[in-house]
């Protein structure tokens, strides 16, 4: 079982975001970066798949600057065998990123390539499926349950109001939803071992593409809440406010 995981370094979801002076990017000063949370499920799955198979290799790929090495080492500390940093600036155009990954993964002999279903920084949900297309292999997105048997994949996707079961053959690309597993924490021994695992750095050039970010704004500040009363007595006031002020009724 040979599994690749594509991993993105993203700002911690609890970080307070400040928009950069160009109005199109975030100010990275003082921002804590973490592995994309959905990618963590993909990492866990890759490690568990290899453990269950009893043999094989897991490889993590990340596109980004040198700081992404730290993110890769987190994956190695969890138990991934080796890492590759595709060293270069990303692009807002998911297709360009997918082209970069596909070029690297082609010929890698992977049975599975796993992505998180989305990256929490840009919510594009594109790179996984586009990479699959470029590799000419099937893709199942937002996988919440996975079974492998005799080279065939059966995956469950949680769709609105139900569960969809999809099947395809290997090799394939899967994008992973939360709930597939519980990502393990890197153990202390894992952290020490990660320093000795191979981490290859390969400079890449990612095209600019055709899609640009023109501006970035923070959501409006949430206004303070208001308590209109307590118990059943408050219902008339609440209904009237929902009608007149919130205009949702």
């Amino acid at each position: 079982m040979k599994v690749a995981v594509c991993l993105k370094r993203v700002p911690d979801t609890t970080t307070k975001i400040v928009i950069g002076s160009d109005g199109k990017s975030i100010d990275e000063n003082g921002v804590k970066f973490v592995p994309n949370p959905y990618d963590e499920y993909a990492l866990e799955e890759a490690i568990a798949l290899k453990e269950r198979a009893g043999a094989g290799e897991t490889v993590v790929y990340s596109l980004g600057g040198d700081s992404s090495q730290e993110t890769i080492r987190t994956a190695l500390a969890m138990g991934i065998d080796r890492g590759v940093l595709l060293q270069g600036a990303g692009s807002a155009d998911g297709f360009e990123v997918a082209k970069t990954f596909a070029a690297e993964l082609k010929g890698g002999g992977f049975d599975l390539v796993l992505f998180g279903k989305l990256a929490v920084d840009d919510y594009n949900m594109q790179v996984g499926p586009m990479t699959a297309e470029l590799l000419g292999v099937p893709c199942i997105t937002t996988v919440a349950h996975l079974t492998l048997a005799n080279g065939a994949i059966e995956a469950e996707r949680e769709i609105e109001g139900g569960i969809e079961v999809c099947t395809c053959s290997m090799p394939a690309v899967l994008t992973i939803d939360k709930g597939l597993n519980t990502p393990r924490l890197p153990s202390l021994k894992g952290i020490m071992a990660a320093k000795k695992k191979p981490l290859e750095v390969r400079p890449v050039h990612v095209g600019v593409g055709t899609l640009m970010v023109s501006s970035l704004t923070l959501p409006p500040e949430r206004l303070a809440g208001r308590i209109v009363g307590e118990g059943p007595d408050a219902v008339p006031a609440l209904v009237s406010l929902l009608r007149t002020e919130a205009k949702v009724l």
């Binding site: 911690d12 979801t13 973490v34 963590e40 990502p183 890197p186």
Partner: peptide
């Protein structure tokens, strides 16, 4: 780690 499952996160 496991942001989505953590109850609350301490950031030091």
């Amino acid at each position: 780690m496991a942001t989505a499952t953590a109850t609350s996160k301490f950031s030091g």
